[in-house]
């Protein structure tokens, strides 16, 4: 049999491509919780970093972006929760439809959006505060002052991030004293604490050893049952292990997007194949 959804990055005919992409998501089942990117272009001070990206990121699945350094993975990811608004000179057009709204519209408040679309970064970046305060930071911003409630949130978030058992006896120690892997799980817990629906991860394991990486991967596997996860990774094996869908990007374009198994077993684009087999350049 042949896989039903193919993308063709080289195919410049927008309409046809869009149709192909649209069917990619949940095997054709579409949900308003899917994140639908339409004709996304992103510029850094006029220099184009992302070109005409169209894709559907399905709900409650792990979607991975792969591609050579500088191809725009982080840029695209950061647009999904409007982190690019914080970069001076960064402009974008196109639409990102999510739950019935175009979240790139001016009237959408990025502050409110980011609570619902959380983000985890490449380098574990806990605040230089205690473990407790790190997790409670978000809920406190949202106006939760009740100590007992905060404690419950901290415990649940840490449990969900599979960190509770390791830190429950030292919640009041500095988060900087944790190991790299623990710090990263803390960052995930911190993101979970504000009850988001989508979690974006930009190379979350690139600074971690294999064991810590495995734990995060297990965690992501668990998370996807309840959250939509979008992850950028340079580790091809990781992408193939944990993601359900994979997009290959090159020079700001989405070259190929499809089920992970298909991308890694039988990529349609020569460029993709050359990249994943390490014959690039």
């Amino acid at each position: 049999m042949v896989f039903g959804f193919l993308s063709s990055g080289n195919n410049k005919k927008g309409k046809e491509r869009k149709k192909l992409h649209d069917s990619s998501g949940n095997n054709g089942k579409r949900s308003s919780n899917d994140i639908i990117l339409k004709d996304i272009n992103i510029f850094y001070s006029g220099k184009q970093a992302i070109k005409d990206v169209d894709m559907t990121i399905p709900e409650k699945k792990v979607t991975a972006f792969i591609g050579p350094s500088g191809c725009g993975k982080s840029t695209l990811l950061r647009n999904i929760n409007r982190m690019n608004d914080e970069i001076v000179g960064c402009t974008y057009d196109g639409e990102i439809l999510w739950q019935g709204t175009d979240i790139l519209e001016k009237k959408v408040d990025p502050v409110a959006l980011r609570r619902r679309i959380g983000m985890v970064f490449q380098k574990p970046n806990p605040f230089p505060k205690t473990i407790f305060d790190n997790i409670a930071y978000g809920p406190k911003l949202l106006g939760i002052r009740n100590k007992k409630k905060l404690k419950e949130i901290v415990e649940k978030s840490l449990r969900d991030a599979a960190l509770w058992n390791e830190v429950k006896d030292r919640l009041n120690d500095s988060a900087m004293g944790l190991s790299g892997g623990q710090q990263q799980r803390l960052c995930i817990a911190r993101a979970l604490a504000v009850e988001p629906d989508v979690i974006l991860m930009d190379e979350p394991c690139s600074a971690l050893d294999p064991i810590a990486t495995a734990k995060i991967e297990d965690l992501i596997n668990e998370l996807k049952k309840e959250y939509t996860v979008v992850i950028v990774t340079h580790n091809m094996q990781q992408a193939s292990r944990i993601s359900d869908f994979t997009g290959f990007m090159y020079l700001g374009e989405l070259i190929e997007f499809g089920k992970t198994r298909q991308i890694f077993e039988n990529p349609k684009e020569d460029l993709t194949e050359r990249y994943i087999t390490g014959r690039f350049g």
Binding site: M236, S240, F264, E265, P267, T272, E273, I276, T277
Partner: peptide, 9 residues
């Protein structure tokens, strides 16, 4: 080498 794509096939 954990090959993928055609190499794996």
């Amino acid at each position: 080498y954990q090959p993928v794509a055609k190499e794996m096939r």
